[in-house]
Simulated assay, not measured.
Amino acid sequence: MAEYHTFTAEDAKLFADEHSGLFGKRSKLQVEKLTDKNFNQVFRVSNDKGTSLIVKQALPNAGYGNDNWPLTVDRARIEATVLKKHYSLCPEFTVEVLHHDTELAAILLEDLADYRILRSELIAAKQFPHLASQLAQYLAHTLYHTSDFALTGPNKKQQVVKYLNPELCLISEDVIFTEPYVNHERNHVPPGIQQQAQALWADQPLKAEVAQLKVKFLSSPQALLHGDLNSSSVFINDEKCKIIDAEFGFCGPIGFDVGSVLGSLLLNYIAHFSLTEQAESRQQFQQYLLQQVTELWQHFAETFNQLMANKCKQPMLTNTDYQHYFLQQLFSDTIGFTGCELIRRAIGVARIADFEQIKSDSDTDRCKIMAMKLGQALIMQRNNLSDITQVQQLVEQITG
């Protein structure tokens, strides 16, 4: 077995050729380097007949953020195994892993060359009618079938151990649930939002609610999560979406994945107050986004509820009153995690292109303040909201 070394383009070509039967013996292969960041490097390997594959390798000595949380290349194993598991449960909407080499920290993936990154498409105000329903199917099936409803006790505990991911979970714990709520050096707080950030840091009732959500993230291994399911982790075209990049995967609270997706859609909704100048076009696209938020939760809840009713393997969990309670608690968790996503993207270390694409600093500040206000409201009111339409009303009230 080969020892780890950082791939050259030639290495990537050989890796793809060796571990795939798609190219054929007489293929003439070409390599294109797609990304080369301090986290991963990605290559596209293609032949002269139009067949192509992706090689992704985790880079050593990688860090995330300004003080470089140290990460091992084992994150490639997590990514590959999570994607393989999710593909087995929802192949239609998950990228296919064709091969994984633990020692080389390299993954061979299907090429999504005819897909585009969802975040970029939403920034450009492009609409996809199938987005909400397909994301809901992915979430419902991957989360339900890795939960206590579908697994025996021993199998569930084995799953938790298999997908332990302490290094990347620590990043999420810090940048989502801690740093945005204190005056931390990694936060990005320009002068225009300083007053609002200071008020947030001093808001003790808000911080108490966030603490509850952090504890849930730390101690509720309800299902196998993607762990970083934002609009940059979704590839999409006119017919289908595919989920990629699961290196933050672990067993955690179901509402975290769902809330991360809803948060991405709402952040884009807010950004378009500045990204789209023409009022009628802006309102039309923002209504599309709110419709996707509403439909995503409704489709997810309906599918998850059907799975609980028809596929539950735990006798005590077949109780319909319990299932109703579980789904309502899941809704509350989801809305809370949605709020955390909004706040951390407004002032935390992990910036997003939705806001970075705004040309005016004052407009950017206005959108970030709006995101903070909405995030705070969702977190504080999550236990009083019983329906996704109430969330839509709250969004329109705060941003209107």
Rank of each mutant, 00 (worst) to 15 (best):
D363V: 05
A346R: 01
M316Y: 09
D174P: 04
T338R: 01
G252F: 02
E302H: 15
L34P: 06
A211D: 13
P70G: 03
S88P: 02
E179F: 08
Q41E: 11
Q127P: 04
H5G: 06
N66W: 04
P191K: 08
Q127G: 11
V55G: 00
E247W: 03
Q397R: 13
F250E: 03
A80H: 02
L385F: 06
Q390H: 14
L34A: 10
N319S: 13
Y87F: 13
I388F: 08
A76M: 09
Q314K: 11
Q212F: 09
A223Q: 07
P60W: 05
M372C: 14
A58I: 03
V189A: 01
G375C: 02
I335M: 15
A136I: 09
A150Q: 00
P191D: 09
F235D: 00
L342D: 01
L109Q: 02
Q397E: 13
F355T: 03
A16W: 00
K37V: 12
Q278A: 14
T318M: 10
E295L: 15
P205S: 09
A125I: 07
G227T: 05
T51N: 09
S27N: 10
H272C: 08
T318N: 11
D74L: 12
G50T: 06
V349G: 01
T303S: 15
T338Y: 02
E179R: 05
N384C: 11
P129W: 07
A105P: 02
K49T: 13
A199C: 07
T152E: 12
V42I: 14
F273A: 09
